[in-house]
Design a protein around this nucleic acid. Structure first.
Lengths: 202, 202
DNA sequence: TCTTGATTTGACCATCTGGTCAAACTCACG
DNA sequence: CGTGAGTTTGACCAGATGGTCAAATCAAGA
């Protein structure tokens, strides 16, 4: 196991390669469906070598999840009370949709975890995530009280945004099977924008 | 392996128990994360006995999926061109939401399969499902052309209904972690009804 | 160059898992 | 009863899988 001191170039490179490979594998097969050999092969390392950098399969998984949670929540963090309410919300939605398009592996990694009861990130949900959502729904509620956007259940508003945008990453196969060759995001962008404009216009 | 003749009472009972147990286990852990022993224990059978009724783990899984696909698509099947457009769509949405509340295991079974690329039901998606959706979006399009509902992308309208309603079953842990003790479906029903009323009112 | 710590690996192990099989048991029916 | 088909199971197997370890290799500073 490498020391905790300043990591060498090799350590940085290999840790990064492992996390990148693990993202590919875990997001495609879930935790239980992925094997250490698979991740090692994808990272271009032997299995014992991989286990030299991370003590176990589970350690890789949690390192991935906790490392990506920040990235995943960044768009919501950026929601700014001082901006124009409708524009703030719509640009949050657009950022989430772009993340589904550009980071589908990350979306599916979390989807895999959540759909199976989030055994490994349950605590993060009810602490970090809940705090963030509480904070941002408070902003939404204030906007509603001020009549700047229509009055709807703020938590379910957030859920709906997550559901709508992440659907395109998580259930990509289904969407594409139905749309045929058409690019899903071509139509999705205008659709969700129209939807939330109509919903939130006072 | 039991004969193909008219199944005995024992066969009916055990097959049903196996599928019920498999639904519990597969929906909670995914295909790869579930073991035959787990399913057998849950069904109150020994592993060899279970494999007397189904030739393999995969056979149980496909039997489950194909058996439930019909149930899963029934609400969309029921969408009737001759009814009142807005009421037809809203009651489709309510039925889907009720299914998320009453059949969350079924929802998660499909979610698990889809998020991992639907390796076992890919063909059903691009044949049965696509045909059904094509048929029903044609109805939606006609309603839009007649000015009976607002004009939006019909495929993305369907996707949004799936995403919004199934979110409450598939990501149940997350929803509950954020809502605290509140019943998710209490607020979800009125929220989605308002959302689609605003979206689809011409 | 030499030394020392960092890195890599082949061989190995214990456990889990899907699946098999022959033998035993049960049940309906003549 | 008795019998034959239907049902159940303990014992077992082969392969996969997470993880270990001692030995080998490499890399950079003295």
């Amino acid at each position: 196991m490498p020391k905790d001191r300043t990591p060498t170039r090799i350590q940085q490179k290999n840790r990064a390669a492992i996390l990148e490979a693990a993202l590919n594998v875990f997001s495609a097969h879930g935790f239980r469906g992925s094997t250490v050999d698979q991740i090692a092969a994808e990272a271009g390392l032997s299995k014992p070598n991989l286990l030299y950098y991370f003590p176990s399969k589970e350690a890789i998984h949690t390192a991935l999840l906790s490392g990506l949670l920040e990235v995943w929540l960044a768009p919501l963090h950026a929601l700014n009370e001082d901006g124009d309410p409708m524009e703030e919300i719509l640009s949050y939605i657009q950022r989430k949709l772009e993340m589904s398009r550009d980071l589908p592996r990350e979306s599916r990694l979390f989807a895999n975890e959540l759909v199976q009861g989030a055994p490994r990130i349950h605590e993060a949900l009810s602490s970090d995530l809940k705090n963030l959502v509480d904070e941002k729904t408070a902003i939404l509620t204030r906007w509603m009280d001020q009549g700047k956007i229509a009055c709807v259940h703020p938590y379910h508003l957030v859920f709906s945004i997550w559901a709508l945008t992440q659907h395109y990453a998580d259930f990509d196969v289904q969407v594409r099977a139905i749309l045929g060759g058409e690019d899903p995001f071509e139509g999705a962008g205008p659709f969700v924008e129209l939807l939330y404009r109509k919903l939130l216009t006072p």
